[in-house]
Design a protein around this nucleic acid. Structure first.
Lengths: 231, 231
DNA sequence: GCCGGCCTCACCATTATTGGGGAGTTGGAA
DNA sequence: TTCCAACTCCCCAATAATGGTGAGGCCGGC
């Protein structure tokens, strides 16, 4: 089955090949994996035409695509029909998309990973409403799993995701960082931990040093994104 | 099947009932859903003893539990054995957990939702290593789907626990937060963005207000854990 | 038994951040 | 067109954070 192939994938070429196989397997027009960085960078693979992908990027459609914002706000898979297409920009985008071969129906699954990673797995097709509803109902679970495995592989292949040498913080340092991260001032943290502010400073500086951080805010940011504290 | 029951669930009582049914169905010692709020609050349901749950909370084990930080750093399901149990605090925690009836084996699936929501779905059991590896291998996909549906329902039932609807930051605010998060001082950020420090302050204050943050560090922490910026 | 990491406390001076005001432009949405 | 959100700039005073330096006790590993 396809999940096994996915598990065996060893590079991004495999993902492109597999997504085409998936499209054929589900007999739909398009299948796309789309990783969106929060600063607007994008990576993806799928079966949309090169023309549409290029147009999407150059026209900065990412910012007005209701599928993107809809997925970003939700956890569950979204049927495109249930999104808000009312604004003029949305409708223009929709018309343009259909003209470039994107189906009139679509189904997108939001996926989130560590460090705010966000991606979408999309199936698109030209079909009547009820046929599409049937398709979505029938295949939802498989698609969720495929999206999950796809993202897992994408994360794996992403360069720069190499696990950093996690310099563990001491328990007191973790506590200090945690309280700072939830908005306590140094005085409040010291009071909460029942230690002097001087002592607290030692922890913060120690944590800053271990994390290679320039200042407290930086240290807290690193502690969070390295998963050393859960805020 | 159980996924159907999950889809039909209409309240948290159903989730508690279902997770017990799931434990019996998979014939394991424990099954737990554990939602960690972005301010350190916790909610969960599962089959751990009340004593252990209470102890976990009062001893603030959330902060030192290697399962939590391990899941927080990863996307894929994690086998407890492959986590880092080397620190003293970790080993104490482990001993205490086993004494309170938690299994020696475990398998936890991280789940992430909108606005930085983070939860874990955990299966725990007393078993030998190879038997457990078999179990995990056999049931991984089912468990991933169950975790997914469970979180979907949990999000549905607990709207109050969801962090305030994403008050998106403006582009400049995102830039400001991002540079602060990588250790720049206000002066440096202002210079980098080629704006006056006064202007920068307006962005920071605005972002702080939108994020409901007490201070800059808090704002950056929230921006990161809600996935508004990537560091 | 020594070394190192962790936890605790202190002072001084400097720099950075914050909170309170006010004010003008621009571009897109209603 | 009107309005609002976003972007830009300014002052003053109070408060918070930081850098440097120092010290003692406790515990576990080599």
């Amino acid at each position: 089955m396809i999940l096994e192939d996915l598990e065996r994938a060893t590079g991004v070429e495999d993902l492109q090949r597999l997504i085409e196989a998936l499209r054929d397997h589900f007999a739909v027009d398009h299948m796309v994996y789309h990783w969106v960085n929060s600063d607007g960078e994008q990576y993806g693979c799928g079966t949309y035409s090169d023309g549409w992908v290029e147009r999407y990027i150059t026209k900065d459609y990412l910012k007005i695509d209701p599928v993107v914002s809809g997925c970003y706000q939700r956890f569950h898979p979204v049927d495109w029909k249930r999104l808000d297409w009312s604004s003029r920009a949305s409708r223009q985008f929709q018309t343009d998309a259909i003209r470039h071969g994107v189906g009139n129906q679509g189904f997108s699954i939001p996926i989130r990973g560590p460090n705010g990673q966000f991606a979408m797995f999309t199936v698109s097709h030209n079909a009547a409403d009820d046929a599409w509803a049937d398709f979505a109902e029938t295949n939802r679970r498989d698609l969720i799993l495929i999206a999950y495995y796809f993202n897992q592989k994408a994360l794996e292949f992403e360069p720069g995701r190499t696990p950093e040498p996690t310099t563990a913080l001491s328990p007191r340092e973790v506590e200090a960082m945690t309280f700072l991260a939830i908005g306590y001032s140094r005085a409040q943290v010291a009071q909460t931990l029942a230690i002097s502010e001087h002592t607290l400073r030692v922890y913060i500086e120690s944590a800053r040093f271990k994390l290679g951080a320039q200042n407290t805010t930086h240290a807290v940011a690193r502690a969070i994104s390295r998963g050393l504290i859960v805020v």
